[in-house]
Design a binder for these strands. Structure first.
Lengths: 247, 247
DNA sequence: TTGGCCAGCTGGTCAGACCAATTCTAGAAA
DNA sequence: TTTCTAGAATTGGTCTGACCAGCTGGCCAA
C-alpha cells in the first residue's frame, strides 16, 4: 500500500510499535522528562519555539500546545520578547495543586477541616524535628507579627509565614506543599472576613500572636503533644472568630 | 482586513467575549468557571472549537490553547471527529494532584507518613459520619477481600476500595481526593513489593483482612478513637511488613 | 428492515503572517 | 574610550486558512 510514514517494523517483535496518539502530547512527555530529570533546571531558558519546531520536526502549533499546559501549571513561564523559562522550584507545585483541590469552591468546611488536620499534625512533627535554622525562621515571623500588630496586611503575611515555616520544619515536603496550597486559599478567606470588621483586627491580632507564641514554645521544647494542642486551640479559636465576623 | 473578527455577542450566552491580557488564559478562566460552577457538567459536550471561536470572538489558536491545559489535566477530553467533553468527575482531579505532588519521587518516606496521617484521620471521621450506604459499601469491599485471599491482584483492588470508601464516608471531598491520589501512588509501591515474595502474600492478606474488619467494626460502632487506633495499627504493620520484604 | 456507503462535521496539525515586548547591536554623542 | 540611544532582530501571543484522519448521521439500495 501507499503508506506515507510506514514505521520500520521489527520482524522479531510484532507488537512493538506504538505510535503516540498526538504529537503535542509526545512533546509534552519529552519536556516533562527533561525537567523532572534535571536536564532543564529552574531558571533555564528553553530554545525558542521556532527552534524547537525544527528540532522536533513538527509545526509551531504542536510545540505551543505542548508548552501551554506546562505554562498554565506554572512549571514553565513564557516571556514575550525574551523566551520561555523553567519556573523557580517554589512556584512549580503551587498551581497544579490548586487546580486539583479547588475544583468545587462550595466546600469551605472541607477546607477548614482539612487545614486543621494538616496543621495540627505539622505542629506535632515540627516539634520533633525542627532544627536550629527552623526555630530561628519561626522566631523571626513572630518578631514580624509583634512589630505589625496594627497593620493587618503585614501582620497577615507574617502570620502565614509562621505556618509555612512550621510546615517546613516537619521536613516532609509533601506535607509542606499541601499546607502551602490550602493555607493560600484560607488566606484569601481570612482577608475577606477581616475587611468586614477592621476595628477589631488589632485585638484579634494580639490574641493570635499570643497563641502563636505558645505554639512556638512547645516546638522549642520539642513537646509534640503540646504543640499539637496549642495549634489545635489556635486554629479553633481563629476559625470561630472569623466565622463570627461573618454575621 | 486585519480587524479582529466580530464578537458575535449574545447575552445569556455562557460563553462571553474576551477582554484580558492574554486571550487564551482569559478563555481558560472562563471555562474553568463554567465547569466549577456546574454550568458544564461531567459528560457534557462543549461547542465545537470553530463554534467557540465565533462566540468568544477569537481565533481557533487561542481557543485550542485554552482547551489544551484542561485536556492535559484530565478535566476535558478531546475526541477526534466527535467533540470535546467534560471528563467524568472521578478522573477530574487525579492528574492535577499527581502533577503537583509527585514532582520529586525520592521522598517515599514523606508519602508513607502523609498517607498515615490522612488515613487515620479519615477513619476517625468516617466513624462519626458514615451513613448506611457508606457502611454497606465498606462491607462489600470486605466481602470481596475475603473471597479473593489467594488472588493478590483482586485482593489488592478490594483493599484499595476499602480505603476509598472510608475516605468517602468522611463526607469531606477534599480529604477524599487527597487520599485518592496518595493511595494510588502507594498502590504501585505495594504491587512492586508483593511481586518480590509471592509465597507470603496469602498470609499477609489474611492478617490484613483481619485488621480491616477491626477498622470496620469500630466505624460501625461510631467509635472514632477506636477506628483511628485500628487504622493506625493496620497501616503501621502493613508498612512494616512491606518494608521487610524489600530486604 | 437491514446493510453499506458517503458527505459533512470534529479535533489535530501545519504553514505563513502580523503584533507587541524584549534584547541586541551598531553608530552617534560624551 | 565610554556611554547612550535608535533601529534591527528575536521572541512569545494571536489570527487565518488549509489539510488530514476519525466519527456521525442520513440516504439509498438490497
Amino acid at each position: 500500500m501507499n503508506e506515507p510514514n510506514a514505521p520500520a517494523e521489527n520482524p522479531s517483535d510484532p507488537f512493538q510499535p506504538i505510535e503516540r496518539a498526538t504529537v503535542s502530547d509526545a512533546i509534552l512527555d519529552q519536556l516533562r522528562g527533561l525537567i523532572a530529570g534535571g536536564t532543564l533546571k529552574p531558571g533555564d531558558r528553553l530554545p525558542s519555539e521556532r527552534d524547537l519546531c525544527k528540532r522536533f520536526g513538527v509545526g509551531r502549533t504542536s510545540v505551543r500546545e505542548a508548552l501551554k499546559p506546562l505554562i498554565t501549571l506554572g512549571i514553565l513561564e513564557g516571556r514575550i520578547g525574551s523566551g520561555t523559562y523553567v519556573a523557580t522550584e517554589a512556584g512549580q507545585f503551587q498551581k497544579p495543586l490548586q487546580w486539583g483541590l479547588l475544583g468545587d469552591l462550595q466546600s469551605q468546611d472541607d477546607l477548614v477541616e482539612t487545614r486543621h488536620m494538616l496543621e495540627t499534625n505539622a505542629a506535632h512533627w515540627a516539634a520533633q524535628r525542627a532544627g536550629p535554622d527552623n526555630l530561628a525562621a519561626i522566631a523571626a515571623t513572630l518578631q514580624g507579627m509583634a512589630e505589625h500588630l496594627d497593620e493587618p496586611g503585614q501582620f497577615q503575611e507574617f502570620d502565614a509565614n509562621f505556618h509555612f515555616e512550621i510546615a517546613r520544619a516537619t521536613q516532609n515536603k509533601m506535607l509542606y506543599r499541601l499546607i502551602n496550597v490550602i493555607r493560600g486559599q484560607i488566606q484569601t478567606w481570612i482577608g475577606e472576613r477581616l475587611t468586614l470588621s477592621p476595628e477589631r483586627t488589632e485585638s484579634l491580632a494580639r490574641t493570635s500572636l499570643e497563641q502563636h507564641r505558645e505554639i512556638f514554645a512547645a516546638i522549642q521544647d520539642q513537646d509534640g503533644a503540646a504543640a499539637r494542642a496549642a495549634m489545635d486551640h489556635h486554629i479553633q479559636t481563629a476559625t470561630r472568630d472569623l466565622q463570627k465576623i461573618a454575621k
